[in-house]
């Protein structure tokens, strides 16, 4: 046997094993914000190449200053403001697994509440509670308005930009 072949075989094995290790060791971070923008460069002026969602897993390529270069599951590479990532997988803010199972178990009550949860202002339950507890109409209206008051994510983004906060810092 030619001595060059075992050498090539060893090199091939090393490359495969090295590749596997690099995949296994690639650091993963998760989006720690309701939404985040993946940009082509590490400034807020760079083009947005993807919109990321809360909890999305990202493979870290490198970190420079306050920005981290990452690769999404769909293969898009770009930069995210590092404060919007976490190394710990977010548990989710709505219902955890037990609560979801609980909703299934509770059946009809959950489906009734779903309808009211999407409605404007007070839910049927809290409205009924207000009546029974003698809460004034003025105070009911206050919580109703508070609940219905909406600020869009874009308005928050504009507010951050004006204040030169986070990724808009100069």
């Amino acid at each position: 046997m030619n001595a060059r072949y075992p050498l090539r075989l060893i090199l091939l094995i090393l490359m495969i094993v090295g590749g596997l290790f690099s995949v296994a060791w690639a650091e993963t971070v998760f989006v720690q914000a309701k939404t985040a923008k993946l940009r082509s460069g590490k400034t807020s002026l760079d083009k947005v190449v993807a919109d990321l969602q809360y909890g999305e897993a990202l493979e870290v390529v490198k970190t420079e200053g306050t920005w981290t270069e990452v690769r999404t599951r769909s293969g898009v590479t770009g930069w995210i403001f590092a404060s919007k990532t976490t190394t710990v997988k977010p548990s989710g803010g709505g219902d955890d697994e037990l609560a979801k199972a609980g909703r299934l178990f509770k059946g009809k009550e959950a489906s009734d509440a779903t309808a009211s949860a999407g409605a404007r202002g007070l839910t049927e339950v809290s409205g009924e509670y207000a009546k029974r507890s003698g809460i004034s109409q003025r105070d009911r209206d206050t919580v109703d308005r508070m609940t219905a008051y909406k600020i869009t994510d874009q308005e928050v983004e504009d507010f951050l930009k004006k204040g030169e906060l986070g990724e808009y810092a100069k």
Binding site: D95, R103, A110, Y129
Partner: peptide, 10 residues
């Protein structure tokens, strides 16, 4: 039972 979000809202 854990309190789900819909219940939490009320």
């Amino acid at each position: 039972m854990p309190i789900g979000y819909e219940e939490e809202q009320s």
